[in-house]
Structures are given as C-alpha cells and as structure tokens.
Design a protein around this nucleic acid. Structure first.
Lengths: 144, 144
DNA sequence: TTCGATGCAAATAGTTTGCATTCTA
DNA sequence: TAGAATGCAAACTATTTGCATCGAA
C-alpha cells in the first residue's frame, strides 16, 4: 500500500490518456496493463483485482494496480468485507449499503459539505476514499 | 461476520454488566471470555483479536468476539490496513488519520449531523461504525 | 540491449473450521 | 451431565515476494 497522503491524483478520462499518464511517470505499457486499464474504464463500480485481471496473473495484477495507485490513477478501497477493490480516482467517492451491498457514487456537493462538517468537528480532513460511506439504504432500513 | 442491520446494541458499562448481558443471551461465562471482556473495557482504542486475547487461543478469541458482536456488545471495525479491530459498541464511532494512524472517538453531536447530511444527500442511513471516518489529521495535512 | 514487467511457486497474514476434550450451568 | 466452549491442527482467502524469463523502449 501507498500512503494516501503522498499521492496526488492523476485524472485521465480515457484509456489513451491513462496510457500517456503512465508513460509520463516512467511506467511501461504492457499487454496486461492495457487489459487492466480497459477493465478499469469499463467498470461501473470498484472491482476486485481478480475481476480486473481476468485470466491474467493475479500477482502481477496486484503489482500493477499498486503501481497505478502510487501514480494517482487508481484508488484502492474496501466496500464491506471481502477482498479490496480498485477504481479510477476519476470516479470519486462511494456510498454503500452494508446490508445488501449495493453501492453508488457520492455526489461531489455532498462530499464537500461532509468534509467541512468533519473538519469542524474533529479537525480531520476526511477523504471518504479508502473506506466508503457505509450505512443502510432505505429498503434495508425498512426491514427493521 | 454478522450483518450490522440485524444487531441491536447491548450497552453495558462494566465487565459485570457485560457478564449479565451475555448470560441473558444464553452465553456461558468462561475464563477466556472474562479475559476478553477485561481487555475490551480496559482498552482506550479498538484492538485486534490478538491484542485482546493475550496468550489465549486466537481461534477461540475470534469465535468469542464474534459471539459478543452478534449479541450487540462489541463491534468489529477496520482502521486502515491490517487486521480488523474490536471495540465495545458503548464507545461510539471513530475518526482516524490515514497517514499517522492516530484515531479518536467521533463526538456524538457531530455524528448526528453527519448522518443527517448523508441521509439528505444519498438516502443512506450511515453508521460510520464498521469503517471509521478516515482522513488526514492537521499535523499530517501540513506536511504537504 | 537494458532494465522493468511477467508468471509461476512459495511465503505470509488474517481468519475460519473440524474435532476431540474440557468445563459451565 | 448435557451441551457449550476450548484448543489445537489444518484449511482458506487475500495478498506479497523471490526469481528466472521475457519484452518494451
């Protein structure tokens, strides 16, 4: 893992732009890295290393995702239990229901207000990035 | 793991009260369970199963902490990477710095306002319980 | 043609499970 | 004394590392 504090985001809105960004950071573009990038850009939610790698070698996938993360292109996060997941930093923060597992992006405006509130209350500059906002969605809340 | 949605908190402010609560739930009080309770009540922060168990058998410690959790006495949470941690539900939610690892309880008032804000923005009833509020404390933020 | 990336194998960390034994209620 | 809890061993999942080989620049 790389410390979040040390990473400055790399925003690339397409696989092509990501390739350029990676090269600019001195990373080489290989077949398996291209596959990972395609999967990351195609994904609508954070995915596990296994899902992103497909048939490719998992150990290399972890190494590559880690490289992408330390370059600020990707973020490593956890949605509930189970394996960690990876998503483009580009895609923002997430909110998830801990009962049914559904998750959705967190609106930027809400994120801003949350950060302000947390800063006032605790002095902490909260990212809501490595861990999502976790709670109960309306449907699951109604069950009880 | 037990689904958070299904658990109703058990508030017990002392080891003795916790013992009563466990018995009320049909759980037996053994030496190792008493040790775990002592450790939980003595702890100022969420601790790992290993730390809480001391010399005792780790597998049993996990089983017991899980039992405590499903009775609503304890909560299982994650502060950054590494092993999961356990704390009394009694003790509330946590805020942690992802750079230096320091963590502190989250004031109840702030928690209430956060929940309201999140609910308005996403419809989600956020607990900030299984995962803490993660961000950068003022000192770590200043380094950059 | 060099050094970074790969892919396999093996190690590691955290956690769970099976099962015979022990002890609480 | 019945059934719950224990303690060891072994399985398991997620992730990392060593190392010889391969390939991008």
């Amino acid at each position: 893992m790389t410390t979040a504090a040390a990473i400055r985001p790399t925003r690339a809105t397409s696989v092509g732009a990501a390739v350029d960004a990676l090269r600019a950071h001195g990373l080489r573009i290989t077949t398996q890295r291209r596959v990972l990038l395609e999967a990351l850009y195609a994904a609508e939610q954070p995915l596990t290393a296994e899902a992103l790698a497909g048939d490719a070698d998992l150990a290399s996938a972890y190494r590559n995702l880690d490289a992408f993360e330390s370059v600020g292109l990707v973020r490593h996060l956890h949605l509930g239990h189970g394996p960690g997941r990876f998503a483009l930093r580009e895609r923002g923060a997430w909110a998830a229901c801990e009962a049914c597992g559904r998750h959705a992006p967190l609106p930027a405006a809400a994120l801003g207000r949350l950060r302000l509130l947390v800063r006032e209350a605790t002095g902490l500059d909260a990212g809501f990035e490595h861990f999502p906002l976790l709670g109960l969605c309306p449907e699951c809340a109604n069950v009880h």
